[in-house]
Simulated scan of single mutants.
Amino acid sequence: MLATITTIELLDHASELGEAIIQSETYLAYIEAKADLKADKEAQERIRQFNMMKDQYEEVQRFGKYHPDYDQISTNIRKSKREVDLTETVVAFKKAEKELESLLNEISGLIARSVSETIKVPTGNPFFDNMSCSGGCSTGGGCGCG
């Protein structure tokens, strides 16, 4: 591909956008939450335990309910997952991660719509992804997309 002035300008703008995202409060909150999670020894131990149980659970899943430890391991994995999910630093990290994802999805949507209204952009939510339409429905616009 030949590099034209337009292509170089486009790459420069993309680089500037990336820098703006990295300097945003949303990204900085994400980095801080990630560092807090990594430094939380209790959370890391709970995650380690959950990952060990996940390996056991996958082994039990091969045989399903016929495995002799199926009920016990299934109960233990749910309890372990709940412990991880209720850990304060995990909750904060997941919230920051979701906010960063929303920011990136919004930016992707703005870029796509500036090119064309019919470009499909994944939102990260399958419910809403399936609701959008790019003119391919057979209702003749009756779904509101047309």
Rank of each mutant, 00 (worst) to 15 (best):
N51I: 02
D71L: 10
Q72R: 15
I107A: 00
I31H: 07
C137E: 15
K38E: 15
C145I: 06
E42S: 08
G144F: 05
L110F: 10
G64M: 04
L103K: 03
Q44N: 09
D36W: 00
L28Y: 04
D12K: 15
K94H: 10
M1P: 07
S80V: 01
I5Y: 09
G141F: 11
K79F: 09
R48F: 06
E32Y: 03
E45Y: 08
Q72K: 15
G18W: 07
D55V: 15
V90R: 09
F63D: 07
R46T: 06
L28S: 09
A112R: 00
K120N: 04
C137Y: 12
A14E: 02
K34N: 10
K65D: 13
I47W: 03
M52W: 03
Q72G: 13
E32V: 08
A29Y: 01
S24D: 01
D129T: 02
Q72Y: 14
E16N: 12
I77Q: 02
E88W: 04
A43Q: 05
D129L: 02
C133A: 12
T123A: 06
S134N: 15
K65A: 12
G146Q: 10
A14W: 00
T4I: 08
I31Q: 14
Q61K: 15
I8Q: 07
K79R: 11
M1C: 11
K65T: 11
A20R: 10
E59L: 10
Q49W: 06
Y70G: 09
K94C: 11
L11V: 06
E32N: 14
Y66T: 15
L103E: 03
A3M: 15
I22Y: 14
T7V: 08
L86M: 14
F127R: 14
K98W: 05
S74T: 14
Q49D: 11
I73A: 02
C145D: 09
N51W: 03
L2H: 09
I22D: 13
V90M: 15
P68S: 05
A43S: 12
Q49P: 05
N51V: 02
A96Y: 01
K120S: 01
E19S: 13
C137Q: 13
D85L: 04
L86G: 10
V90F: 14
T139N: 06
D69P: 06
L100M: 04
R48H: 11
A39M: 00
K120Y: 11
I77M: 08
S134M: 13
V60Q: 00
I5S: 11
E88N: 14
K81E: 07
R62P: 02
A92S: 09
V60H: 00
T87S: 14
Y66I: 13
N105T: 08
M1K: 08
T75L: 13
A39P: 00
A20F: 06
S80M: 12
V115C: 07
I47Y: 02
R46Q: 10
T139H: 05
I22A: 15
Q44P: 03
Q49A: 14
D71S: 12
G146V: 09
R78C: 00
A112M: 01
L37P: 01
Q44Y: 04
G136S: 10
F93G: 04
A39Y: 00
I5F: 09
A96K: 00
A14N: 03
Q23L: 10
E16A: 13
R82L: 15
I22S: 15
T123I: 03
